[in-house]
Every structure is written in structure tokens, then in C-alpha cells.
Design a protein around this nucleic acid. Structure first.
Length: 265
DNA sequence: AACGTGGACAACCGCGGACCG
DNA sequence: GCGGTCCGCGGTTGTCCACGT
């Protein structure tokens, strides 16, 4: 599924994500967080725009993203929330742990809306929910695929990942949360917070952005491709696999610590 | 077996809000 | 108040695949 990979005028890759790209993005964010979406692909070695990376992470790679069939309760919540909120998919998603707004939106358009329209004539809400649930337990496409989802099944990293349970929390997977803010002087700053240690370490990044955030490519000078013409890295890889913000002789990190340490200013 | 069609869903695109100088 | 940057949201599109003919 997804779109056929292609490249735009700026040399950025578009379309379906490869398992290698997924791994790079996931590994990078797990390790360093999404401190700045625009610059993240550069440091993660991805020829993607930041917006694409954000979407992929939020809708697919993010911990706790629950995939697969919808339960009766979930569909009930979606229908009721839609009556209440309309097309506020993010608000509806907030009521369904593990479900993304995009996934709910798709599910609504392909299953629930159609069914609601069909059953409005019968005017039996209980029946609507029951019918939607019966198919929601396993959709036609899932039956076809014999779910698990194709990409997850094909991706050894994803398939080996622990099952994401409704009750699990993101902190079980990563203790790091990241907030981005702007510091005076127009410089970007990174606020990395280690939940477990409650320590916050603001740091500054030298990158000043003047171009459109989402559309401007962020390829480094040196681009490496493998034999399949896939981008291996847009920056020279360093030990551990990524060029990080700290590799610009500005910061360093102590990998043995729960949080990153930086030289005093 | 070949082809057409529609379902499903990942990903793209454009817009607008929050924040800051 | 204005413009720029960053980010999130919702609508739409592109593509794959199963199924029907």
C-alpha cells in the first residue's frame, strides 16, 4: 500500500517508506527525540522533508500506535464522538489510546460513515453499532491479508517489537520526552526532558532557518546512495549510526547516562 | 487467465494556529 | 500589529490488492 517512491524537484524522497527509512527514523527518535522536525531528517540520514517524517512517526512508528481491527468499544466511541465533535479527528483520537487521527479518519470514511448512512433508514442505533462492530473485528482487507499488517509483518524490526497494548504507556518504551521552543536571538533551542529524572537540559542549536519549514529540503552536502538508489545517509555516519546535533562540535552526549549532558556555557 | 472495479489505507497537501521577535 | 517559524490538523490523493466478471 502507500505511494510509489519518487523524488521531488529538490531531491527529497516521497511516497512509501522503506523498512530502512523506518528504522532510521525510529532509531533516531528513540535515541534523540524529535527535537526539530525540519532538521531531523538531516541528522537521521533521511532524504525526506520534516513533515513527512513527522507524519510517519505520528501515524505509524510512534510507540503505542495500535494497529489492527477496531473493537466494539472503539467504534462506539468514534461514532458517539463524531456526533459530538464532528470531524475533529485529533479530538476523537484523544479518546482512543493508541489510535491515530489519520487511522480513525480512514476508518470512518471506509467503514463507519458508509454504514451510518445505510442504517439511517433503519434508525436503529444499536443495530448500527452492532453491525459496524461485526465487521470492525476484522475488516475485509485484514481478512485478505490475514492480519498482521503487511508492512509490520515484513519489517523484522517492527514485527519483533513488543505488542502494543491498549494499557501500555509511552513511558514504558521511552522515558524521554522532548519539547522544542525558541530562545531569544532567533535561535532554536532544544529542551530535552528525562521524565524519570525530572531533569531538563536546554541547549541551543546553531541552525537558523530562513526557508519554508516544510518545503525546504534539508540535504547535506554529501549524499550517499546504495546500489538500489536508496539514500543511505545524507551526512557522514558517525559511530552509532547518526550525525547528531552534538556532532557539530557544539555538544556532546554521554550515552551512558539517562539524559544527555552538555558542556557548560 | 485476463481484465476491470472498488475497498482500504498510507502519504501528500494546504491551511491555520501558536509562539516569538 | 506584523511577519516569520514551527507544528498540527483535516481533506484529498495515489497505489495496492482482492474480488467479480
Amino acid at each position: 500500500m502507500g505511494r510509489r517512491p519518487s523524488y521531488d524537484d529538490n531531491g527529497r524522497k516521497k511516497g512509501a517508506w522503506s523498512p530502512e527509512e523506518d528504522k532510521k527514523l525510529r532509531d533516531y527518535i528513540v535515541r534523540y527525540g524529535h527535537w526539530n522536525w525540519r532538521e531531523l531528517p538531516k541528522f537521521a540520514g533521511l532524504a525526506r522533508c520534516g513533515k513527512s517524517c513527522r507524519l510517519r512517526w505520528m501515524n505509524y512508528l510512534r510507540p503505542n500506535v495500535k494497529r489492527g481491527s477496531y473493537t466494539e468499544e472503539e467504534e462506539d466511541i468514534i461514532i458517539k464522538s463524531h456526533e459530538e465533535l464532528g470531524n475533529k479527528w485529533s479530538a476523537i483520537a484523544a479518546k482512543l489510546p493508541g489510535r491515530t487521527d489519520n487511522e480513525i479518519k480512514n476508518h470512518w470514511h471506509t467503514h463507519l460513515r458508509k454504514r451510518l448512512h445505510q442504517d439511517q433508514s433503519t434508525a436503529d442505533p444499536g443495530k448500527i453499532l452492532k453491525q459496524s462492530t461485526n465487521e470492525g473485528v476484522q475488516s475485509a482487507s485484514e481478512k485478505r491479508r490475514g492480519f498482521a499488517p503487511k508492512e509490520v509483518a515484513n519489517d523484522p524490526d517492527l514485527s519483533q517489537a513488543p505488542p502494543i497494548l491498549e494499557s501500555s504507556s509511552s513511558s514504558e518504551i521511552s522515558n524521554l520526552s522532548f519539547d522544542c521552543a525558541l530562545l531569544p536571538g532567533g535561535m532554536n533551542s532544544i529542551m530535552m526532558e528525562d521524565i524519570s529524572s525530572s531533569s531538563s537540559i536546554p541547549v541551543e542549536s546553531i541552525v537558523e532557518s530562513t526557508d519554508d519549514f516544510w518545503t525546504q529540503p534539508f540535504l547535506a552536502d554529501t549524499v550517499y546512495f546504495n546500489q538500489n538508489d536508496d539514500l543511505i545517509s545524507s551526512v557522514p555516519l558517525v559511530e552509532g549510526g547518526f550525525l547528531t546535533p552534538y556532532d557539530h562540535n557544539l555538544y556532546y552526549y554521554d550515552d551512558g547516562l539517562d539524559y544527555y549532558s552538555f558542556p557548560p556555557y
